[in-house]
Design a protein around this nucleic acid. Sequence first.
DNA 1: CATGGGTACATTGTTACACAATTTGCGCGA
DNA 2: TCGCGCAAATTGTGTAACAATGTACCCATG
Lengths: 222, 222
Amino acid sequence: MCPRRRESPTRQKAPDQIADRLREQILGGVVEAGTPLREEELAREHAHSRHTVRTALAKLAAERLVQFVPYRGARVSALSIAEIEDLQALRGALESEAVRLLHERHGARWPDTVLAPIEASIAGLEAAEHGGDWLTITRAHAAVHTALVAAPGSARISEVHEGLTSETLLLLHGVRTHYPAGSLAAEHREYLREIQSGGGSLVREHLAHTTELIRASRNDAR
Amino acid sequence: MCPRRRESPTRQKAPDQIADRLREQILGGVVEAGTPLREEELAREHAHSRHTVRTALAKLAAERLVQFVPYRGARVSALSIAEIEDLQALRGALESEAVRLLHERHGARWPDTVLAPIEASIAGLEAAEHGGDWLTITRAHAAVHTALVAAPGSARISEVHEGLTSETLLLLHGVRTHYPAGSLAAEHREYLREIQSGGGSLVREHLAHTTELIRASRNDAR
DNA sequence: CATGGGTACATTGTTACACAATTTGCGCGA
DNA sequence: TCGCGCAAATTGTGTAACAATGTACCCATG
C-alpha cells in the first residue's frame, strides 16, 4: 500500500475496526438485544485474536451497546423504560445547559455563527428523511442535537453528550414510528426557533416526547 | 481462604486491582503529572502480564487519570486551565440539574430523607478535616457533591458525575490551599442551605470558586 | 560545523496458544 | 422428583513472540 504520510494519523487500530463493525451490526439490527457475543466466535469472524476482540468489546461496553456478565460474556444491551428515562434526564441536563450557555452569551437571538452549523445539520436530517433508512435518519437526528450541544463550545459537555449517541441510536432502532418525510426536520427547525427564547423546559419537553414515542412503540410491540 | 458465598460478587479482577493501586499512587502524588507509565515496568511491579496491565491502564484512561499516545504509551494526565473550566462546566451542568430536580419535587425546603445523606457526608468531611491528609479531605469533599447529585435519584447523572471524581481529585492534588480545619464543612453546610432556595447559579458560583483556587495555586507554583 | 537522512532502539499493538477461574446445566442416584 | 456432583462452555489471564510506530542518534556530506 502507499506509504503513510507523516501528517496522517496512524492507521485505525484493530480493536477500533472491530468495534466499528460490531456497532454497525448492533445499531443496524443485524444483532438484536440480548444476543450473546462470544469472544472466540467474534475472533474467528473478524480474523483477530481474542485479546483484540476483548478490547473492542470493552469499547462497546463503554458506549453501553453491550453489557458484560463476568465469565458469561457480553450481550447486546436492552434498556428498561426506567433506564431510558434516566438517559433522557442526563441528555436533558447536558442539552439544557448548552441552551442556557447560549442564552447567557447571546440572549434570545442567536447569531448566524451559532445557528449555521445547527441549521446545516437539520438540512442533513431533511436529506436523510428523503430516501435514507431508519438508522440514517436517527443518525442525522442525533447530529442535530450534537450540533446544538456543541454550539457553546463547552468541550466536556459535548463529549459526554456524544458518548451517549450509540446508546440513543440503539434505543431508537426499536421505534418504528412513521414520520412523513421532512417532518422531523420541520419539527427541529421549530425546536431551534423556540429554544432561542425558551429554556431548559423546552429541551426536557422535546426529549420527553421522544421517550413517549419509545414507550408507545414498546407497548405496540407487545 | 473461606469459600465465597454465591451472593458475593466475584473477587476483584486483576486489572481492577492494578487500576486501584495506580489510582492511589497518582492521586496520592507518588506518581506525578507527565510521568510515563511503561507497560513492561508496570507488569513487573504488579506481577501481572502486559495484557492485564494494558486493561488496567485503559480503565484509568477512561477516568482521565492517564493519557495514551499511540506507540508512546501512557502518562499521568495534566490539565490546562481551559480544560479545568470545561470540566467544571460539565460538573455544573450535572449538579445544577440535580438541584433543579430537587426544587421541582420539594420546593425550597427539602425533606430530611433528601438532606440526611448529604449532611452525613458533610459530617464526614468535617471529620476528615480534623486529622486527614489532603487526599482524604478532597475525597470527603467529593463525597459531599456526589451525595448531592445522587439525591434526586437520576442514576445516569450520578454515574457521569461520579466518573469525574478521579480527575477532580487529581486536579485538587496540586492545590495547596490551607483551610482551617472544619471550614470546608462549614462552607458546605452553608452551600446546602443556600441551594435549597437558590438555583443553578449558586452551583456554578461554588464551582467557579474552586476553579479560582486551582488557578491561584498554579500561579503561586510558578 | 551544521543539516539531513537512515537506522536502530524503545515501546506499544497484536498474535497464538494455553491454562486458570467461574457459572450453569445436565445426568445420575437416592 | 430432587439434589448433588461433575463436565462443559466461556471468560480471565498468562507467556512469549513478533509487528508496527515514533523518536533519537549517528554518520556523511556540503
